[in-house]
């Protein structure tokens, strides 16, 4: 084996770099159960064992710049088979969170910024949201058995608040109907809200705890304001 041609690379190694993470990565046996369980292993030369090894060597720059943490689906199959209970998918999320926000791939970060500004990923104004949901409600009311159907918006004291996935508001309006029809059939006292209706929390994917917290706090704020005791988060 040849030595590294770049002595600076050796200096960058820092075995204490991630020492405060709860994941016991230093116990990795490189047994390969994770690699066998992983849907991504082999693609782009990814192997969870390599990832764990890089963490244990403190290769922060390489990890943060790599595509690996982003092509991982964080499905947790590695975690469930790992005999040393290392918790690899959580470490992937940590690494994702360390990337500069403007280098987060795809539409995730843009969506989160939109949420912060407008309350939802689509940046949809409140009156457009209300127009869409009422339109869908009218269609439900035309179906046999649902003639009295109405969609409760911002109903104070309702038993359940239900959040909504933005794609159902955006392009898949038909899929709003299923759950609402069940509520109607069950005579549930439910509501949706017109401000912070977004149920999708992309901070989970980008490793952004602050963004996740912001969205959860907004949902809590609405529950407090409308005096609602139960949350259904179908996303």
């Amino acid at each position: 084996m040849s030595r590294t041609s770049d002595p600076a690379a050796l200096e960058r190694l820092d075995i204490d770099r991630f020492v405060d993470w709860p994941a016991p990565y230093q116990y990795c046996l490189t047994c390969g159960l994770c690699a066998g369980a992983c849907p991504v292993a082999g693609i782009d030369d990814f192997d969870p064992r390599k990832f764990v090894r890089m963490v244990s060597m403190g290769m922060e720059e390489e990890l943060v710049e790599a595509r690996w943490p982003w092509i991982c689906t964080m499905c947790g199959r590695c975690d469930s088979v790992c005999p040393m209970e290392i918790g690899i998918s959580g470490m992937v999320r940590n690494i994702r969170g360390m990337r500069e926000r403007d280098k987060v791939p795809g539409g995730l970060q843009k969506g989160l910024e939109q949420v912060e500004k407008t309350g939802n990923v689509l940046g949809l104004p409140k009156e457009d949201f209300i127009f869409i949901v009422e339109d869908v409600a009218e269609e439900i009311a035309e179906e046999p058995g649902f003639s009295g159907f109405k969609v409760p918006i911002d109903k104070e004291g309702a038993f359940i608040l239900s959040t909504i996935h933005n794609k159902l508001i955006n392009t898949q309006n038909e899929d709003l109907k299923h759950l609402w029809k069940i509520f109607y059939a069950a005579k549930e006292d439910w509501t949706i809200t017109s401000d912070y209706w977004e149920g999708v929390n992309w901070g989970l994917f980008t490793g952004d705890d602050r963004a996740m917290r912001m969205m959860v706090e907004r949902i809590i704020l609405q529950m407090d304001t409308l005096k609602i005791e139960n949350l259904l988060w179908p996303e």
């Binding site: 469930s80 995730l108 992309w202 989970l204």
Partner: peptide, 20 residues
């Protein structure tokens, strides 16, 4: 517990790595 991931987890529907 051993279910195979559909491949759409972890935000991969939005990262743009569609071939993968």
């Amino acid at each position: 517990r051993d279910q195979i991931c559909c491949g759409g987890g972890g935000g991969t529907l939005l990262t743009g790595y569609n071939e993968e």
